[in-house]
């Protein structure tokens, strides 16, 4: 039997459709009431999904607020470092990096956390390059800070031709030379994330102030629900590791404060892990 609400549809259909064995009409004719009830199902699932999401969020918020010491694999930082150093025994020094991973609990639509962290003990020394058309300015700058490479238009050409290899981790430039950098070295430096630009705060008239604020600063960004980056090396002392962790915590808190959203993210469980080792929960709060 056809349900009553199908009647107007039926009347509007060309006659051929009635004889078909396929399509909604044919199914309606065969299964009757069971199919008529079917359209209500997706609505329910959506509701269920929403509730499930909500429950999940409440649970993860609760877990994030729980003190780290209640976790089964929680250890204090010196103890965790002792295990990680033991696990990394015999591995090449370059591979013995300790990584900090912090879970972030945030509602849908909240922008990801990002910021800069200045580690008191950086993992490797930062090599700086400075570009300017004014040689005197560079000379004065070199007296103030240690620079790997400095120069103007000549240096740009040398870098482009490959005469001078790209051996620096940060580059700064004055506005007078920035367009030249963009056009000639855009592909070379841009790919490595070294190209100075105003948005990053690496192009400006006062090179010294920019270098002071940016060098040693390591950018971090939330990926999925995690903040993760290398925080130390295995050969660092416990004091150095703790110093870096404190700096990271302050940077995270600043990133949360700067978040442009009504509902701010919460930091969850933090783990220390090494390249070949296990992850150990530590107390970062």
């Amino acid at each position: 039997m056809l349900a009553n609400h199908w009647r107007p549809v039926l009347l509007r259909m060309p006659l051929r459709a009635l004889h078909t064995r396929f399509g909604p009409l044919a199914q309606e004719a065969v299964t009757g009431a069971a199919v008529a009830a079917a359209p209500a199902q997706p609505k329910l699932t959506k509701e269920q999904l929403r509730r499930r999401e909500l429950r999940k969020m409440i649970r993860s918020k609760m877990l994030a607020k729980r003190p780290a010491s209640q976790d089964k694999v929680y250890l204090s930082v010196p103890e965790a470092m002792r295990i990680l150093r033991a696990v990394e025994v015999g591995q090449p020094t370059s591979q013995q990096t300790i990584t900090l991973t912090t879970m972030v609990v945030s509602e849908k639509g909240v922008p990801p956390l990002h910021g800069d962290v200045v580690l008191p003990t950086p993992l490797k020394p930062v090599r700086i390059a400075a570009f300017s058309a004014d040689p005197e300015l560079l000379k004065r700058l070199q007296e103030e800070v240690e620079l790997e490479i400095v120069g103007g238009a000549e240096l740009i050409d040398q870098l482009k031709s490959g005469e001078v290899p790209v051996q620096f981790d940060k580059a700064f430039a004055t506005p007078d030379i920035a367009p030249q950098l963009n056009s000639k070295l855009g592909a070379l430096l841009g790919r490595r994330g070294l190209l100075p630009n105003i948005k990053k705060g690496t192009v400006g008239p006062d090179l010294l102030a920019m270098i002071r604020s940016k060098v040693g600063a390591m950018p971090f960004r939330q990926r999925a629900a995690n903040l993760a980056f290398g925080i130390a090396k295995c050969h660092f002392s416990d004091r150095q590791v703790l110093g870096n962790l404190i700096a990271a915590r302050e940077a995270f808190q600043l990133a949360i404060q700067n978040q442009k959203s009504k509902k701010r993210s919460i930091l969850g469980r933090s783990t220390l892990s090494s390249t070949h080792g296990p992850g150990i929960v530590i107390d970062l709060a």
């Binding site: 033991a86 696990v87 025994v89 015999g90």
Partner: peptide
Amino acid sequence: FWHDYLPTLQYYNPDFRIEL
């Protein structure tokens, strides 16, 4: 031997240098 025993040996002798 390196994988199975050296981590424990290093853990209980933290200042002992082990080279590979």
